[in-house]
Design a protein around this nucleic acid. Sequence first.
DNA 1: TTTAAATTGTTTAAATTTAAACTAAATATA
DNA 2: TATATTTAGTTTAAATTTAAACAATTTAAA
Lengths: 153, 153
Amino acid sequence: MKTTKKYGKKIDLALSLWVKLSRAFTVVQQKAAEDIRKSGLTVPQFAVIECLGHLGELSIGELTKKQLVTGGNMTLVLDNLEKEGLIKRRRLQENRKIIKVSLTEKGKQKFLKTFLPHAKFISMLLSVLNETEQKTLANLLKKLGKTIQNKNI
Amino acid sequence: MKTTKKYGKKIDLALSLWVKLSRAFTVVQQKAAEDIRKSGLTVPQFAVIECLGHLGELSIGELTKKQLVTGGNMTLVLDNLEKEGLIKRRRLQENRKIIKVSLTEKGKQKFLKTFLPHAKFISMLLSVLNETEQKTLANLLKKLGKTIQNKNI
DNA sequence: TTTAAATTGTTTAAATTTAAACTAAATATA
DNA sequence: TATATTTAGTTTAAATTTAAACAATTTAAA
């Protein structure tokens, strides 16, 4: 922790936290991305497969909200997954504005084959923190993420 | 916290932590990016200005390491900052492979004008956690980031 | 010394991402 | 009903980012 006050105690602490949050995320993200690419999927493709694999059929809007990406981007990711036969789109008859997305049989196989190994990789990576530390960290991050997201600034 | 074991306690905990880390980072990052764009700089441009403003003259390699971006990308960011007259490049005579980058007078003014308001914004954003929580979080994130980065996987 | 290897930074092409304009469908309002 | 607004998703153009090939310089090894 820095001991010199550059901009005042409160600001210095927040900046230091933000730097460490960025660094920790980026480091994990880059290792995770390397691991994901081995499966032949891009990171956003993997994220969609994972989301559908765990939560079942979702609308495109729900997917973009879950992953905090823009709609145009999601369209492209889904197009590519559709071309590979991993997902399918289905227009809702009750509300024809909405398109539901789900895994095909091939997509389910891909999910089953790729997710657990990647989960183990992440677990191995994060094992530099013990169980208690991981729980504490997760709780603080949850509070940070949830509160800021719900806050309209 | 999830109570159902999907992949075993250890893996579930790590996955849950990774999701929360991503979410917290992304949420803060998107708010921070919005704030930075008001200054007329892109996020990576701002990061370079900040780095040079705080650390003084750095080589291009040092900048890419600090920001965990690829070299090609840094070249473009520096080109654009140079066009705007905010930074300057200087080839080292002792080692002509190395190019040192520093802020111009205009760049220093930009740094002084933009950094503190942004720092205050970040501080306000992170104030959803109290001082103790911020310190705990920063320490855990530091441990996570440093250890994984030094670990060769 | 001279060649080979490593380091530093740039260029290029391709992939990714965003923002804004757009289409289509549903809902609200006059 | 008819028009306007909102919502859901797509298209497009531009910006960003990466990875790989490249050039220049330095260092190491034969």
